[in-house]
């Protein structure tokens, strides 16, 4: 076993270790230590040097390949394709590209815009209803009996005297004074507190 044999075995092992890394070595993407080891190996290994040279040439050749470009009517054809999309997917009508002044895209093509618009419309309707609708009337309690009208006898007498001096036939106070006892309701709670002139008479509303 001599040094020459040892070096030969070492290079063989390194070839097996480094062969799959030669593409990355060409691209310079390995870490510094590994780059240095492969560089030293390639310097003494003819087969790996040959692989590295050809990989370099391939990468360089492909980098020099022609750059192909679209045709001159590409934009026009693309515009036509988008305009021809079904409305639910395209959400666009007519031309949307500008070699000329472009039309705006449809306003509702995005969900946030649609949502904002819906809220705005609902707010406007609500404001309109609040402004133009009549306020509801105050609910009247129909269960409570009508408040009794309190009429003083002395007022009726005074009114009778005035009317009888004018037109006795249309004297409502005389009619009232002449009405039957049943139609004149007396508030027992108040009667004993008042004098005759000031006795409160509860008149039925239905009269």
């Amino acid at each position: 076993m001599n040094l020459q044999w040892f070096n030969k075995q070492r290079r063989r092992v390194q070839c097996q270790l480094f062969s799959s890394k030669l593409s990355e070595y060409v691209d310079g993407t390995l870490d510094r230590d590994l780059m240095w080891q492969i560089k030293n190996h390639v310097a003494v290994c003819a087969s790996c040097m040959d692989v590295v040279d050809s990989l370099n040439s391939i990468a360089r050749l492909l980098g020099l390949a022609n750059r192909h470009e679209v045709s001159s009517n590409f934009s026009g054809a693309l515009e036509a394709r988008i305009a021809a999309l079904p409305r639910k997917t395209a959400q666009a009508t007519g031309s949307v590209f500008a070699n000329r002044t472009a039309l705006s895209w449809p306003k509702w093509s995005s969900a946030p815009v649609r949502l904002t618009g819906s809220f705005a419309a609902a707010a406007m309707v609500l404001i309109g209803l609040l402004v133009f609708m009549k306020p509801p009337s105050v609910p009247v309690s129909v269960m409570m009996p009508p408040a009794p009208a309190v009429v003083r006898i002395s007022d009726l007498v005074d009114q009778h005297r005035e009317q009888s001096a004018g037109d006795p036939l249309s004297d409502a106070s005389a009619q009232l004074l002449a009405s039957s006892v049943d139609t004149i309701k007396v508030d027992p709670a108040m009667n004993h507190k008042l004098s005759d002139d000031d006795a409160a008479v509860l008149v039925d509303e239905e009269m």
Binding site: H68, V70, F74, S75, V96, F97, A102, W105, V113
Partner: peptide, 26 residues
Amino acid sequence: CQRNDVAAFNEIVGRYKNKIYNYIYR
């Protein structure tokens, strides 16, 4: 583009049409 800017869409097409075309051509 997501805010319906047509000029932005045109700019994207202009930037990438030849790159994408070249890739697809190959």
